[in-house]
Design a protein around this nucleic acid. Structure first.
Length: 967
RNA sequence: GCGCGCGUGGCGGAAUGGCAGACGCGCCAGACUUAGGAUCUGGUCCCGAAAGGGUUGGAGGUUCAAGUCCUCUCGCGCGCACCA
């Protein structure tokens, strides 16, 4: 390949235009109120001068890539797929007249840089900066139209200052169930017994951290108050079992643990009780679920989030305890007289023949009589010894033991045994279930194994179905007790009736349960955002936390020489004694935030990346996130052409990010966390939309040429630099899109890249004079340096068959068919078929003896989003060859197709007999149904199939098809 | 096990219920060439000399007409997975 002749001098063209775009700041996106240089192509296109207000700017289009973690390995050809798609869209929307925001940045905190630091002692910041430089060089070599003036890195103190600021907002807020939103902590009312006039208002300034708290006669009351408030913050401290990963030396969130292993590295994790920072994402479970219906995401992605949130409706039911003698009676309130269960099938209550507690359930010891104590203790130890992985792997075989205690089924007064088994999870529902073996698969298996009674209470709709293990809806049977009967009712009604009865008796209530747990937000790492929190000791000896004031931000991490994690789980930051211990005796929080923190809000920082007074200005947020509707702007894109818009892509401003493209791996991590933060910021009035990402598309993975996922170990990784060197970035970009639909998984193909490279060569030869190109090539061999070589591009002349003449109707038809297809396909993100439409155009145009320059120019505008460097070069060559005013192709108005030009004088109509194709006839374009019918019958090829037969029916699809039904 | 998605030439993939296989790769033949791994032209689903027949994982169905809609079935991919 390297030895073959270059299709066109992309090696000079591509750097040339990247440099021009950079010098002219072509892709700078302008904020409301920002000074726009009058000679900037955006200003010229939209006739803007000075500092336009939001209402004077054209409608915005915010098109976002998931920013990358800059790893040391650099980019392979799979990385630019999404970036190419968004760049094509960004350029297309710019041509349509939108004010396009298309930024790029770095999700730069992360474990690899820290692990490298542990190994080599090189500061993670240095590693990170090197990696960013590599990524940036590679991404820039691909010619994306990012506004680099908005570049950000989550590791930059000017950035994470605001990450910490948002944490303070979470810390200083609570979720008010009455208003159903987050509110400043000041609005939280303490219960009357905690209210005290002397301390009542004093601590209501929540960010008054740093102030000393002298001992007071009300100190007990004060710490009780503090406990109450602290337990309701959206960011709170909790001691609870968390996932600890020994190898990584840190705790992990539920979302970061996959199949009992760490998502990063695949190391084993174990449950350990630790004191950690948590974020109260569960308060938003319902909103996170419900608002999925308001956004344009793929169904599969929404489904993943729904599954993760895991909403289920049901009832909590209390079962009265019947203690056998020998139970460890303790003084206790009503909690010790009943066991509360959660069930989604209260209608099967009559079939509950036993109960099961999780081995960790707090009542287990209490209810277990002496003679069962040994067996129960043994089982608890057995269950605790199993890792989570083993627990799932051994899922087939049910285990458990009888506690010796029993309870009363509230609907029929029957005495049922209480077991413990590890198929009941302590962390879900109430950690206890009523077992209905007849109508629950797991209970059925368990009851079968341990010979527990199985009682039918639901009749399947189809009497042939076995009721044993029947878990779907049916009709209640055997469900009549002394006070309540639901026999004969369909499942839905039975649920309602029995739940109402339970509620009226105070035995239970309707409940909604979620699988979603609060977000474990602290990590025992160095390379992350420190918490803006200090710890103090009260006069009562209790330690408590306080927020630092905003003026203390950013809180920078200390310098360390040893980044190693500690075995105890104490964070590495604790080694920096001078940093930790403050003069007033308080101590800094030494945990850091997880990597996800920075990516929770970066899309907001892009809007106003340099703002040092706020995380984003109100004006910028309102403009880019869509609070200003296009109606109020009184402008529409392409208003300069005065034509009505033709397609949906020109429609109104959408709320939030208009298009977000990234991999599916963030389905329940980044995308859930970012939505959560955004909703908190929305509730607190800092952003104007309830959802951050209006439309989201997952690009499919690019596999290696061998159809395997690209990986170092397989040796099938193709770095982006390889095709960029050999065929140029325009060809790479084109092939990234030509492989197949964006969302689909597809294999890389070196041969395929050559195919689109040849296409670009054909485009080139459509325009240029071959002889002059040969001259250029000869001159190039003697050129001394890159600058000289670049100058030589001038030697290449336009082909003399490109003329300033009127296009023929056939040529216009070819052009407008291409405009139509490319426009429609871009609106539908069908890049692959858009490219094939351009290939069709070129295959035709290359045969024209005379090539009207007007047609070729419009084609270049279509090509520009896909192959911008080549298109710009040819565009400028045309301008100089035909003495046109030089103009920036990036802002040239998108051509619109004229349907009138697509009308044919004749049309080809397939003729079927009994649904089988027999002929394709040519008829005048204006032929009506009768004419079609007549022409079809007259067809010579059709004759033999209808001769001597009766025509029973004739189907004519106007301008489409004729079908003759004969017999 | 449950949920979602997908099965079309040698390959990647096109087809508002209306001519299956656009476009590209590969392959075959030819042209130009000292040469071709450059370029250009033509061909390329299967059976058949042709007429014609068959063909979108498989089996049914709806329809004048099905790759497309419905039912069942097989295969692949992704997600969740003892969530009561």
């Amino acid at each position: 390949m390297a030895s073959s002749r270059r299709q066109y001098p992309f090696h000079l063209i591509e750097p040339k235009w990247q440099q021009i775009w950079d010098i002219q700041q072509t892709f700078r996106a302008f904020n409301p109120g920002e000074q726009i240089p009058p000679d900037h192509p955006f200003a010229q296109r939209h006739k803007l001068t000075g500092k336009p207000a939001a209402t004077q700017l054209p409608p915005k289009f915010y098109i976002l890539d998931m920013f990358p973690y800059p790893s040391g390995a650099g980019l392979h050809v799979g990385h630019p797929e999404g970036y190419t798609a968004t760049d094509i869209l960004a350029r297309y929307k710019r041509a349509l007249g939108f004010n396009v925001l298309h930024p790029m940045g770095w999700d730069a905190f992360g474990l690899p840089a820290e692990q490298y630091a542990v190994k080599t002692g090189q500061h993670p910041r240095q590693t990170t900066e090197q990696n960013i430089a590599t990524f940036k060089r590679q991404i820039q070599s691909l010619g994306f139209s990012y506004d680099w003036s908005r570049e950000l890195a989550t590791t930059d103190p000017d950035y994470f200052k605001w990450t910490q600021w948002i944490f303070l907002k979470l810390y200083n807020s609570w979720f008010n169930p009455e208003t159903n939103k987050a509110e400043p902590i000041e609005t939280l009312k303490c219960p009357a017994e905690l209210e005290s006039q002397s301390v009542g208002r004093a601590s209501s300034r929540a960010d008054s951290g740093g102030g000393s708290s002298a001992a007071s006669p009300h100190q007990n009351l004060k710490s009780a108050r503090r406990g109450f408030v602290d337990s309701r913050r959206l960011a709170y401290v909790s001691e609870q079992p968390v996932w600890w990963c020994e190898q990584l030396g840190t705790v992990l969130a539920n979302e970061e643990v996959v199949d009992g292993k760490s998502e990063v590295g695949g190391f084993p994790v174990e449950r350990r009780p630790m004191r950690q920072w948590m974020l109260r994402i569960t308060a938003y479970a319902e909103k996170l679920l419900a608002d999925l219906d308001t956004i344009d995401w793929s169904e599969s992605l929404k489904e993943m989030q729904r599954n993760w949130i895991g909403r289920s409706e049901g009832a909590e039911v209390d079962f009265q305890l019947l203690l056998a003698s020998g139970g460890r009676f303790q003084p206790g309130g009503p909690d010790y007289e009943r066991i509360r269960v959660f069930t989604t099938r209260p209608d099967t209550l009559f079939g509950a023949t036993y109960m099961v507690l999780a081995p960790e359930h707090k009542l287990v010891d209490y209810i277990t009589p002496l003679k069962q104590r040994k067996a129960v203790e043994d089982y608890k130890a057995f269950a605790a010894s199993k890792s989570d992985l083993e627990r799932t792997e051994l899922a087939k075989e049910k285990t458990g033991v009888f506690t010796g205690a029993c309870a009363i089924n509230p609907v029929n007064g029957e005495k049922i045994p209480i077991w413990i088994a590890d198929y009941v999870l302590a962390s879900y529902g109430t950690g206890a279930i009523m077992a209905v073996p007849a109508h629950d698969t797991r209970d059925f298996e368990f009851a079968t194994k341990f010979n527990l009674p199985i009682v039918q209470v639901v009749e399947p709709p189809d009497p042939k179905t076995d009721w044993r293990g029947f878990v779907d809806d049916g009709t209640s049977v055997n469900s009549t007790g002394p006070e309540i009967s639901i026999t004969g009712l369909p499942t839905a009604e039975a649920k309602k009736k029995i739940t109402a009865w339970l509620e009226s008796k105070g035995l239970g209530k309707k409940t909604v349960n979620y699988k979603l747990r609060d977000w474990l937000f602290s990590r025992q790492r160095y390379w992350g955002e420190p918490f803006p929190i200090v710890w103090k000791k009260g006069p009562d000896g209790q330690s408590y936390h306080e927020a630092l004031p905003e003026s203390a931000l950013p809180v920078l991490p200390p310098e360390l020489t040893d980044y190693k994690p500690t075995a105890t789980g104490e964070p590495p930051l604790a080694r920096a004694r001078d940093w930790v211990n403050l003069p007033d005796g308080s101590a800094r929080e030494t945990n850091t935030m997880p990597q996800w923190a920075g990516s929770c809000w970066y899309y907001l920082r892009y809007l106003d990346a340099k703002n040092s007074n706020a995380f984003v200005s109100k004006e910028a947020e309102a403009y880019w996130m869509g609070a200003i509707s296009p109606q109020s702007t009184g402008r529409s894109p392409q208003s300069d052409s005065g034509l009505k818009t033709q397609d949906s892509g020109l429609k109104s401003t959408t709320p939030g990010v208009d298009l977000y493209v990234g991999g599916t791996e963030h389905a329940v991590l980044h995308l859930l966390y970012a939505r959560f933060w955004h909703k908190v910021l929305y509730d607190l009035g800092y952003v104007s939309t309830p959802e951050p990402f209006f439309k989201l598309v997952n690009q499919g993975m690019v596999l290696g040429e061998d159809n395997q996922k690209m990986s170092k170990s397989r040796g099938n990784v193709i770095p982006v630099d390889v095709p960029v060197q050999e065929v140029g970035t325009d060809a790479l970009r084109l092939f990234e899109m030509f492989m197949g639909p964006l969302e689909m998984v597809k294999p890389w193909s070196t041969k395929g890249v050559e195919g689109v490279y040849r296409f670009l060569g054909r485009v080139w030869r459509l325009f240029v004079d071959e002889k002059s190109e040969t001259e250029f090539e000869q001159a190039e061999t003697t050129a001394k340096n890159a600058q000289e070589r670049k100058e030589l591009l001038k030697l290449i002349r336009m082909d003399s068959v490109v003329k300033d003449v009127a296009a023929t109707p056939a040529q216009l038809k070819t052009l407008h068919a291409c405009i139509k297809k490319v426009t429609e396909d871009l609106d539908g993100l069908r890049f692959n078929t858009a490219i094939s439409a351009m290939m069709v155009f070129v295959n035709d145009a290359i045969t024209w003896e005379t090539k009207p320059v007007s047609v070729l120019r419009e084609f270049l505008i279509l090509l520009a989003p896909f192959a911008p460097h080549l298109a710009e070069e040819l565009w400028s060559k045309i301008a100089s060859a035909f003495s046109l005013q030089p103009s920036a192709l990036a802002y040239a108005p998108w051509p619109r197709f004229d349907p009138a030009l697509l009308v044919e004088s004749e049309m080809e109509i397939p003729v079927q007999v009994n649904g089988k194709l027999r002929d394709v006839i040519k008829v005048p374009a204006n032929a009506d149904n009768a004419a079609l019918e007549a022409a079809a019958k007259a067809s010579e090829k059709v004759q033999p199939f209808i001769a001597g037969k009766t025509i029973r029916k004739i189907i004519v699809v106007p301008k489409k098809l004729v079908n003759l039904i004969v017999s």
